[in-house]
Simulated assay, not measured.
Amino acid sequence: MSYFTAHALSCVFKQHSTQQSDTTLFSDLSFHLERGEIVDLTGPSGSGKSHVFMALALLDPHASAKLTLEGKDSSSFTPESWRRNVVYLPQRPVLTSDTVLDAILLPFDFSINRSVKGLGPQTAKPTAKQIRNELDELGLDDVELVRNPTTLSVGQQARVCLLRSLMLRPKVLLSDEVDAGLDSDSSEKVGAVLQSAADHTGMAVLRVRHRDSDGRASMILSLAHGRLSRREMA
């Protein structure tokens, strides 16, 4: 039994006018992720990669799929608990708090993360020292915890959002081009942090990437013209 599975994954834009036909972005896609595995999703712009991610996180009203996590169907989860376990990290970072520290700690005040089932000892609210150390690992040693997130570059904001997601200890992380626009050294640090999280927590990682392979993905999924192809990596 696979750790995370997606079957019959489809995205169709319905037309309200009878004069126009529905638009199918992709249909009947299937793949699976194993515990601790990193898989890359590639494909041309507009092929639907972000819609795949939103569908997997139950965030796309145009999409449908049969999804399972650790053998449990997504229908057995509430939408909130599913998104707590299957975290979508969008391409455009969103940080609304007044400081970097508050932005990272914000989700820990949500009820789904304060509940016994939603937040176990392994995902206890991190300390400022832990956050400082993790920011340094991501190459953000020059970003102060008291700094306003709006003053950060897009690449810095993306890495702060990544750290926030990782500290929630999701079972599946959907990372949409988090290293886009980063220099090679910063991109390597992001990859190393994701690899460490996958190795130590068993988190499965699905990444949208347009960079050359960094050798961490066990498989490359390519989406084009509504079809999904697979390439196993040595």
Score class of each variant (00 low, 15 high):
residue 1 M to F: 12
residue 2 S to K: 06
residue 4 F to I: 09
residue 5 T to M: 06
residue 7 H to D: 12
residue 7 H to T: 14
residue 7 H to P: 07
residue 12 V to K: 05
residue 17 S to Y: 13
residue 22 D to L: 10
residue 29 L to Q: 04
residue 33 L to Q: 02
residue 34 E to C: 09
residue 34 E to L: 09
residue 34 E to F: 10
residue 38 I to S: 03
residue 41 L to Y: 01
residue 43 G to C: 03
residue 48 G to R: 03
residue 49 K to T: 08
residue 51 H to I: 07
residue 57 A to V: 05
residue 58 L to T: 07
residue 64 S to R: 00
residue 66 K to R: 15
residue 74 S to M: 09
residue 76 S to C: 11
residue 79 P to E: 05
residue 85 N to E: 14
residue 92 R to N: 10
residue 93 P to A: 15
residue 93 P to F: 12
residue 94 V to L: 12
residue 96 T to M: 13
residue 97 S to T: 03
residue 97 S to W: 00
residue 99 T to I: 01
residue 106 L to R: 10
residue 106 L to K: 10
residue 106 L to V: 10
residue 108 F to E: 02
residue 113 N to L: 08
residue 115 S to H: 00
residue 115 S to N: 05
residue 116 V to F: 15
residue 119 L to F: 13
residue 124 A to N: 05
residue 126 P to I: 12
residue 126 P to D: 08
residue 128 A to I: 10
residue 128 A to W: 04
residue 129 K to T: 15
residue 132 R to Y: 09
residue 132 R to W: 06
residue 136 D to R: 15
residue 140 L to C: 06
residue 141 D to H: 15
residue 146 V to M: 10
residue 147 R to C: 00
residue 151 T to W: 11
residue 155 G to E: 03
residue 157 Q to S: 14
residue 157 Q to Y: 02
residue 168 L to T: 04
residue 169 R to H: 13
residue 170 P to F: 12
residue 172 V to N: 05
residue 172 V to Q: 08
residue 174 L to Q: 05
residue 175 S to T: 09
residue 179 D to L: 06
residue 180 A to L: 14
residue 180 A to M: 07
residue 182 L to K: 03
residue 184 S to N: 11
residue 187 S to F: 02
residue 188 E to M: 12
residue 188 E to Q: 08
residue 188 E to F: 13
residue 192 A to L: 10
residue 193 V to L: 08
residue 194 L to P: 07
residue 194 L to K: 06
residue 194 L to T: 01
residue 201 T to M: 09
residue 202 G to R: 02
residue 211 R to F: 02
residue 213 S to F: 02
residue 217 A to H: 04
residue 221 L to T: 01
residue 227 R to N: 15
residue 231 R to S: 13
residue 231 R to D: 14
